[in-house]
């Protein structure tokens, strides 16, 4: 990323990247749902020996559903964040333009009519910045929540491996389910971490830049 890119410009790029990552998460969640359906069939066929596996498949199903719902929610918030970034960026630019005019028109007879306009723009830019920061913080919080819920899935994949071991005939198939769950949760975790990292970078940049 260019060194002179402002936080507002960075977030427009970041929003696109985050949206793409979230779409990827959604695809993984869909695959998880398919995997669960497969696991349910296997555990049904395995009968009594895979009894302990059934609540696990229910849990995985719930995780996949939660992830998909969170993706929808977070994507909407990313879209709001993009709009706020555009407004924040716009008022920042307008303010800079007026500040340039104030410098240029220093000696003009009617230059005294500019300061109230600039004060108003400064207020507007500050309000936009606060709204933008609030939304950004909310988004980072939601991503952290998602990361935490995914972390518990990792425990479940370990438990499912233990349960798979107790079903001799279907052990291999159920282990594949456990492996898939582990791979999926890891992929989701990586993507969520990347989103979180990018948004945290933007947040740090805004705090460094101060008021627009």
């Amino acid at each position: 990323m260019k060194k002179n890119t402002t936080a507002q410009e960075t977030i427009l790029i970041t929003a696109g990247t985050v949206t793409a990552e979230l779409n990827g998460v959604n695809e993984i969640a869909k695959d998880m749902t398919l995997g669960v359906m497969n696991a349910k069939t296997i555990s049904h066929r395995a009968g009594e020996s895979a009894k302990g596996f059934r609540p696990i498949t229910d849990y995985i199903e719930q995780v996949a559903r939660d992830v998909s719902q969170a993706v929808v929610r977070i994507s909407q918030d990313v879209s709001v964040l993009s709009r706020l970034a555009v407004s924040y960026h716009r008022y920042g630019k307008i303010l800079k333009t007026y500040q340039c005019v104030q410098q240029e028109a220093g000696q003009a007879e009617h230059a005294s009519s500019l300061p109230p306009v600039i004060e108003n723009l400064e207020r507007q830019a500050k309000e936009d910045r606060n709204r933008f920061l609030q939304n950004l913080e909310g988004l980072i919080f939601q991503l952290n929540e998602m990361k935490n819920s995914i972390r518990s899935s990792k425990v479940i994949s370990t438990v499912s491996r233990v349960e798979a071991a107790s079903s001799q005939a279907f052990r291999q198939s159920l282990e594949v389910v456990a492996d898939d769950l582990e791979i999926s949760t890891e992929k989701i975790r990586e993507r969520v971490m990347r989103c979180n990292q990018q948004l945290t970078t933007v947040m740090a940049q805004i705090q460094r830049e101060g008021v627009a």
Partner: peptide, 16 residues
């Protein structure tokens, strides 16, 4: 041209 235009105008009239 906005900045130049506004600067030029302020030599003649006030914004209000």
């Amino acid at each position: 041209v906005f900045a130049s235009m506004l600067t030029a105008i302020l030599h003649h009239v006030s914004l209000d």
